[in-house]
């Protein structure tokens, strides 16, 4: 791992950007579709839609720990979506997704900012320890998965697949 990676471990804020060859309106609609959130965050949390624009998140930590929170998502404008956690969140967080036209025929640029506020104000390393994944990877991977979903209708997966371990299958 490079120095940049170890520095990323210390961040409780995460920022990532990605370009997707689709118009912003399509991406805006796809982001708000209930099943989208559960699919793009699956590397990090189980997300279940519980109401209009509200979702229940369960993130698994190492050694069986579980962190729960609910979020409310808002469409601030055609080019901006945001969410924040409701009261009693185990790990309060907020996110803002901004969209801008990409140059030429490249579609739309997406910028995602997520801020975690763990209980007691623990910052930095604690986040990656709690979730077993650094915040930067959480958001970059989610955007990668979102792009795959937007362009192809599916997200690359390798489970279950044959392997000479775990009784013959990777889950």
């Amino acid at each position: 791992m490079s120095d940049v990676e170890s520095d990323a471990n210390l961040e409780a804020d995460a920022h990532a950007s990605i370009t997707i060859g689709k118009p912003a309106a399509d991406l805006h609609a796809l982001w708000l579709r209930p099943e989208t959130q559960s699919r793009i965050w699956a590397h990090f949390a189980d997300v279940r839609v519980v109401g209009d624009r509200t979702a229940e998140w369960v993130a698994k930590g190492p050694a069986g720990g579980e962190y729960r929170w609910q979020t409310l998502t808002k469409a601030n404008s055609p080019n901006e979506l945001s969410w924040s956690t409701l009261d009693k969140a185990d790990v309060a967080n907020q996110g803002v997704l901004t969209m801008r036209p990409a140059p030429g025929d490249r579609g739309t640029e997406l910028y995602l900012d997520v801020r975690f506020d763990p209980p007691g104000g623990i910052v930095g390393k604690a986040i990656s320890k709690m979730f077993h994944i650094v915040p930067r990877e959480i958001v970059r991977t989610a955007l990668y998965r979102f792009r795959a979903l937007a362009l192809t209708g599916e997200i690359a997966r390798t489970d279950p697949q044959p392997a000479g371990r775990n009784g013959g299958t990777d889950h």
């Binding site: 192809t152 209708g153 599916e154 997200i155 690359a156 997966r157 390798t158 489970d159 279950p160 697949q161 044959p162 392997a163 000479g164 009784g167 013959g168 299958t169």
Partner: peptide, 15 residues
């Protein structure tokens, strides 16, 4: 390298 018995692959995604 060993030849082993593993599960058969299955369709995961629609394509």
């Amino acid at each position: 390298l060993r030849v082993e018995t593993v599960s058969d692959p299955e369709i995961i995604n629609p394509s």
